[in-house]
Structure formats: C-alpha cells, structure tokens
C-alpha cells in the first residue's frame, strides 16, 4: 500500500500504466525512471507523457531532485511524481525541484503522519532559488 502526498495532504495513489525506459516506445502516458536513468532518452516522448515517476531508493540519495529539475528544464510539463524513501523534511525540496506529488509507503505515513507533511506545504516560502532565478 502507498499514499500520495500533495499540498492538500494524504490521498489515494491514482493507478497509472507505468512502463520503464526500455518500453518507452509503447508507453501509455506514464513513465517510470530510476534515479540512474538519463532523461535524454525520454526526450522525444516528453510531450506525450502525462506522468513521470522518479524513484528514490534511499533518503540519502538526492539524484532524483536533479533528474526532476532537468526534466522541467527540458520542457516536461506533465505531472512529476517522486516515489520511495522520502521523508517529510524532503517534501519542500521535492516540490521546489519540480515534483508535483510524492508517493510514499504506508509504513512511512504511519511514522510521519499527515500533519508533518502539511507543515512543509508552504514550500514556496523562504526559498532562495525563486528569488535568485527570477
């Protein structure tokens, strides 16, 4: 069981037909990327993809943040979802890097209940990047 975290709190995870990069040619709107995948491979498909989900295998592995930022820079306008070992303290980082939502396992939600995530829903405040990049 997993949960979807957005600025509104916890919700159910919409089921999407994710495929990996190796099957991207026959995708049906949803792509799964590993933290080690290069976004260039998805470039020709970005306009047709509705959702890209990026894996976070461990709390200490921040590659997914750069991957998300790059997909946005390369023009991806669909939904970006972070999935895996993400803690509430990283929610603002995920949102600022370009993610729309975070998919976490039930066990994480049990340990870090909704209010701990909602406490970071104000991710647009105190953000040096938005000041510097304007």
């Amino acid at each position: 069981m997993s949960l979807l975290v957005t600025d509104q709190g916890f919700g159910p995870v919409p089921a999407l037909p994710f495929v990996g990069l190796d099957q991207i040619a026959s995708h049906r709107g949803a792509l799964d990327l590993a933290q080690t995948d290069a976004p260039e491979a998805a470039l020709p498909y970005l306009a047709d993809l509705a959702c890209i989900r990026i894996a976070f295998p461990s709390v200490a592995d921040g590659r997914g943040f750069t991957l998300a930022r790059r997909l946005r820079a390369l023009g991806f306008a669909g939904t970006l979802r972070a999935q895996g070992a993400i803690i509430a303290d990283q929610y603002a980082m995920a949102r600022r890097s370009g993610f729309d939502e975070v998919e976490i396992p039930q066990a994480m939600a049990d340990r870090q209940p909704q209010e701990q995530w909602l406490a970071r829903a104000n991710w647009q405040a105190h953000d040096y990047q938005s000041r510097l990049r304007a």
């Binding site: 921040g62 943040f65 930022r69 990283q90 980082m93 949102r95 600022r96 105190h126 040096y128 000041r131």
Partner: peptide, 13 residues
C-alpha cells in the same frame, strides 16, 4: 551562500 542555502537539489549529494 544564498544560492546554496537549502538548495533543493543539493542537500543529498
């Protein structure tokens, strides 16, 4: 300093 402070991509290098 300002750019790197809480830079969202680079807290888990």
């Amino acid at each position: 300093r300002q750019w790197s402070s809480d830079h969202p991509e680079f807290q888990f290098l």
